[in-house]
């Protein structure tokens, strides 16, 4: 079976991480005997940086000036037809679902979106995805030809692909038939992937303390995020939200402070190796969903806890 994996290049500073993700994803499918090729798309000029990276196998790349799923899907569909791919797997990104469904509609393929687990099973692919605000897991089987888009994908443990990298840059798409003009408004300050995540919830009592934890995380190379209500009350940007309407993380250690553990938040940390929660409420949902918990006011604990994480980090 021949598979095309699609990866979004989210800025040239993220290209090394994108290469690791591409190798990992391809390595997973190759362990099931798939032959994989990949397609990279992004808004910034990235070809020069991409060619220096450690991608795996045959990799096509295309730059799109206008941010839109339609031209990306148009270009990829030509590639799919020419390359005779049985399946397409699109890595998580804001346009992943849009591109997936457009491709499936253009090419009359089966489709599943928001998939977090993919297991080839001989007859097809067993996919799992979340529904009902992440409170229900659905299991589907999808058969070739298919398009799948991923979301909150579970950790891959197989070895990354070692296929020799061949780079095929495609023509840069500068025009659009229906987007008349575009101007950037703001760029997100993206956090890299740290092994430690600090997540603050409504139990953190003041805006100043949220700022303290944010700064502490930044200074020590940790990731930082908040639950959605904290952002809504104006103590953090919406972009700092963890969960279904924000970011997902897969750190080695996630520390939650004053978080209740609603499903919409929890999916943002579900792939953490180890979750440690600090909460005064023993019955909070997050406690049962954590590997370890301290039932205490976060103020009594966080000083020593954060310092111990910094010490751990320093040993790396």
């Amino acid at each position: 079976m021949k598979l095309l994996t699609i990866v979004h290049i989210d800025g040239t500073d993220a290209i090394e991480a994108a290469a690791l993700r591409q190798r990992t994803l391809n390595g997973y499918f190759e362990s099931f005997g798939y032959e994989c090729e990949s397609y990279l798309y992004g808004a910034e000029k990235f070809y020069e940086d991409a060619v220096k990276q450690d991608f795996a196998g045959r990799v096509y790349a295309q730059r799109f000036h206008f941010i839109s799923a339609v031209p990306v899907a148009d270009e990829i569909s030509a590639l799919i037809i020419g390359g005779k791919f049985d399946g397409v797997v699109i890595e998580e990104s804001e346009l992943a679902n849009d591109i997936a469904v457009l491709l499936a509609a253009y090419l009359d393929r089966r489709c599943l979106t928001n998939v977090f687990s993919v297991t080839p099973n001989g007859t097809g692919i067993l996919c799992k995805r979340l529904s009902y605000n992440n409170n229900l897991i659905l299991e589907h089987e999808i058969k070739a030809p298919f398009v799948i888009s991923l979301r909150g994908y579970e950790k891959i443990l197989t070895a990354p692909s070692g296929a020799a990298f061949e780079f095929f840059p495609l023509r840069s798409m500068e025009n659009s038939e229906y987007i008349l003009s575009q101007k950037p408004v703001s760029k997100a300050g993206k956090q890299g992937n740290s092994k430690v995540l600090i997540a603050c919830g409504m139990g953190v009592e003041t805006c100043e303390e949220i700022e303290y934890f944010r700064n502490y995380a930044r200074e020590h190379g940790f990731n930082f995020g908040v639950t959605r209500p904290v952002a809504i009350r104006g103590w953090a940007k919406l972009g700092e939200t963890i969960g279904v309407s924000g970011q997902t993380f897969a750190p080695k250690i996630c520390v939650t402070l004053g978080v209740s553990g609603a499903a919409a938040f929890y999916v943002g940390i579900e792939n953490a190796d180890f979750i440690l929660s600090v909460n005064t409420n023993r019955d909070a949902l997050i406690i049962a969903q954590s590997d370890a918990a301290i039932i205490d006011d976060y103020k009594n604990v966080c000083g020593k806890l954060l310092d111990s994480l910094v010490d751990l980090y320093a040993t790396l």
Partner: peptide
């Protein structure tokens, strides 16, 4: 084919 309520419990250790 099937719907399953996720079991997110990690059997947390309570210090």
């Amino acid at each position: 084919m099937r719907a399953v309520i996720p079991d997110r419990r990690r059997g947390g250790y309570l210090s």
